[in-house]
Design a protein around this nucleic acid. Structure first.
Lengths: 198, 198, 198, 198
DNA sequence: GCATAAACGAGACGGTACGTCGGGTCTTTTC
DNA sequence: GAAAAGACCCGACGTACCGTCTCGTTTATGC
């Protein structure tokens, strides 16, 4: 007989959830996830610590939840529109949309989450599930169409192609400093395209 | 008038330094940098905490120091030999040497350091200074020669070329799971070469 | 806005309080207050340091609390009985009761507390409030009755009389060595009485 | 063969000694002995810690040395003069001389030393040897003469008489607050004399 | 409709680690 | 060989959060 019963999501108070997510994201943006504490979130959201632990396993999970939710809202609004027959143009648009318009100034939060995920396998899994996988699937789909069109070499694994593109962005985010402006993301796509063409 | 005077490096005890670095690296390899604590290092090295704080600003700095020192020793022994006239072969050798033979099973430590560096600008700077910059300079040099030979397109910035290559490795290290074996690094180089050729 | 809020005494765990006081007093008796540390008390009581700091400002305060509590329990049981019409006999009984039966072998703790109080004004105030004042008030009352009876000279301030008596005991406790047996406390009262008689 | 040889007092540098004692006393007067540290004394005196440990066993010993030295100088100049045939007058003069003119505003240092002595038996012994014993011997001598003269009851132990007097002063110093002015020391002597007269 | 079980705010609690201070020992260099 | 300087091991300081655990209070079904 377990003492700690699983909580009932039906009885969850949505206002409380919102307050926690808002506080967590705000604090992560201000100070970086490393300086965020569950205690701090609880205080700022006017909430008991218990309530946070009831619904999330760690501060990283809270911030990821808040951050991903915000992204998903934005992405749903965009990703239908961008479909022409020019793969390179579509690619540049997709990358710009994602990296600049959607992530934008929450890039630091993304970096924090990746950092935290290095020692938190659950968070890493959740991060890939919420963010990397859906985005990759979407882009992979477009790449496959480009391969059918003959705009991308047929012998390339779409997922490796994605790595070739996005890895550059993450490298600049996590390893070396540098601007993340439109010129840069265009350059990223250009350089990748050199290798992807048939 | 500052209370904490700068310590005198001349009076530093090299045995103590070695013990600290060894303990720090061992613990980082076993549990990951996030679980390492200054207190733990001190205990394992049989050293006072004060002694660590005297010479390093943070646990990340200690582990980076230990880890980079180990790498530098290895690299010095290698990087002279590997110079043929075939850039692609050289590139594959360099990447394999660095990522598999040298970093090898300390890949997790590298990931930890990058993670820590996300909220520690000093550590980030030191990491780039000790690791990224020297390695990049070396590879950039080889790329320039390849451009002169006509094996690499002349209009590519060597540093962007490096990003195209290494970013893939860091992406798999930090973002998505996957093997880091010889087949993979070859594939990384192959994919990059597609874009680099004239 | 203060970060550290005042704790709520209603939520205090009495078992924890008891464990801390017991550990503190035991350690003070064994090694003297100077060798007691908050850390040591916490370890022995199986308690977090924070819990001690939440309720007491210093190790001296903990030990005083434990020691005074023990004394108060004993004193309440005694001080009603001792009331005859012979002031000198009553005085001797009171002094013996307090110094030998009640304080007894915790004399070293008392000395430690007085020592600590020399550089801790809050502790000094608490010590006087918990110990010196109530005991003095009680004896002063008896002296006033003796003055009304003509057993003590009317022109003497009762509190100065108390000093004349008790100062001798503290002098031997703190300044010069010597036994604290019944013969001695009788002698103390005798010598004082010489000066107090009309 | 002992590694730590006993130091040679003949080679001791008197300027260094003076600097240490001066610094120690100054710091003890400013902040109380409890806040004095060997490290602090060393820094203020411009001296290595080793040098202090070479000649004194503890910070208490240093401060006692400095303080007692200062007192001895003063006492030697005074105590010859004060000899009339009126014991009570002599007593008042002696007490006032010692407590007000000699100790005066270093009363806090005295309290600190007594406090420290509670957990440092060596310091306690040294304190009694340097201060209590010589002063007591002197006063005891005068009391014996007064007993011969019939000014003090012959059946009183001179040392107990001394306790009766001085204990009051230490009680006010260590236990209860209150002025230490001339009126008070006179009152102390008056009250004691009531009990000492034949 | 009303009891009753859960979510919730609050925060006490046992812990771990933080970064700092000083104690006392030791070594190196200077005089 | 005394002394200045300070590195070193160690123990304790007082603080910040961790994650668990009561407490009452509020709320919102389910009998």
């Amino acid at each position: 007989m377990s003492t700690t019963r699983a909580p009932d999501p039906a009885r969850r108070n949505p206002q409380v959830t919102a307050a926690i997510l808002e506080a967590a994201l705000a604090m992560a943006r201000e100070d970086g996830l490393a300086r965020v504490s569950i205690e701090g979130i609880a205080a700022r959201a006017g909430v008991g610590k218990r309530t946070i632990y009831r619904w999330w396993p760690s501060k990283g999970a809270v911030v990821l939840d808040a951050w991903a939710q915000r992204l998903e809202e934005r992405l749903h609004r965009r990703l239908e529109a961008t479909q022409t027959d020019d793969f390179e143009a579509d690619l540049k648009l997709m990358v710009k949309d994602a990296w600049i318009d959607t992530i934008g100034d929450t890039r630091g939060v993304l970096a924090s989450i990746v950092a935290e995920a290095q020692h938190d396998p659950d968070l890493a899994a959740e991060f890939r599930k919420r963010l990397i996988s859906p985005a990759s699937a979407l882009v992979a789909e477009r790449i496959r169409r480009a391969q059918a069109d003959g705009q991308v070499a047929a012998d390339i694994d779409p997922y490796r192609a994605i790595e070739l593109i996005y890895a550059q962005l993450y490298y600049r985010l996590l390893i070396v400093p540098g601007p993340h402006d439109e010129a840069y993301v265009n350059d990223v796509a250009d350089l990748a395209m050199r290798g992807l063409r048939p």
